[in-house]
Simulated scan of single mutants.
Amino acid sequence: MGPKTYSWPVATFDPLILKQPRWILAIVVGVVITLAFVRLGFWQLDRLDERRVANTTSEARMSEPGRPREGVLGEHGQEVNEMLHRATSVEGAFRTADEFFSPGRVVSDRQGTLVATPLDLADGTVLIVVRGIVPPGTPGPPAAGFEPPSGSVALVGRIDDGEKPIPIGEHVPEDGHLASLSRVDLAYIDRWIEGDVLPITLILEEQTPPDPGGVPLRIPREELTEGSHLGYAIQWFSFAIIVAVGVAVLVYRAGTRAGPTEAFPDGASRL
Score class of each variant (00 low, 15 high):
Q78K: 08
Q78P: 00
T117S: 04
A36E: 08
R131C: 05
E75Y: 09
T261L: 13
S63I: 06
P68V: 08
K4T: 10
I234G: 11
V153G: 09
I200Y: 11
L73K: 03
I219K: 02
V251W: 02
E170F: 05
P135M: 04
V245K: 09
T56I: 02
D190H: 13
G77R: 02
P3E: 15
W192R: 05
H76S: 00
P118Y: 03
G77P: 07
E206L: 13
E223N: 12
E262W: 01
M62D: 05
G195K: 14
T261E: 15
E99V: 08
P199N: 12
T34M: 09
R105P: 00
S269W: 09
E70I: 14
D98I: 05
H171I: 12
I234F: 13
P265Q: 04
R191T: 08
P148A: 15
V107M: 07
E222L: 15
V156M: 12
E99F: 09
G151N: 01
A233V: 14
P216N: 14
T125I: 07
S238C: 06
V249Y: 10
T256L: 12
W192E: 07
E82K: 15
D161K: 03
H171T: 14
V31I: 15
R61F: 05
A248K: 06
A258R: 15
I133P: 00
P173I: 06
V153M: 10
W23E: 03
Q20V: 03
M62N: 00
P142F: 05
A143D: 09
S228Q: 15
A93D: 13
F42G: 08
G214C: 08
G41R: 09
S7Y: 10
G214P: 01
E206D: 15
G137C: 01
K4F: 11
Q235F: 13
P139V: 04
Y6Q: 06
V90A: 11
Y188A: 08
A116V: 10
P173H: 12
A143I: 06
T57I: 07
R270Y: 05
R257W: 04
I33G: 06
T261H: 12
G162P: 07
I193F: 07
A144L: 11
A254E: 06
V72D: 05
W23D: 03
E205C: 03
E75M: 05
A54C: 01
V80H: 02
S150K: 13
R221T: 10
V72A: 09
G246H: 09
G92K: 14
V249S: 04
G227S: 07
T5G: 12
R131V: 00
L25H: 02
R110S: 12
I193S: 04
G213R: 07
L127E: 01
G195F: 13
I241M: 07
A54R: 13
P167E: 10
L84F: 04
E223V: 15
G267K: 04
Q207G: 10
V245I: 04
T256C: 12
G124C: 05
A36I: 07
W43S: 10
S7M: 00
G176S: 00
V184R: 03
G259N: 10
G231P: 13
W192Y: 10
E64Y: 08
Y188Q: 03
G71R: 06
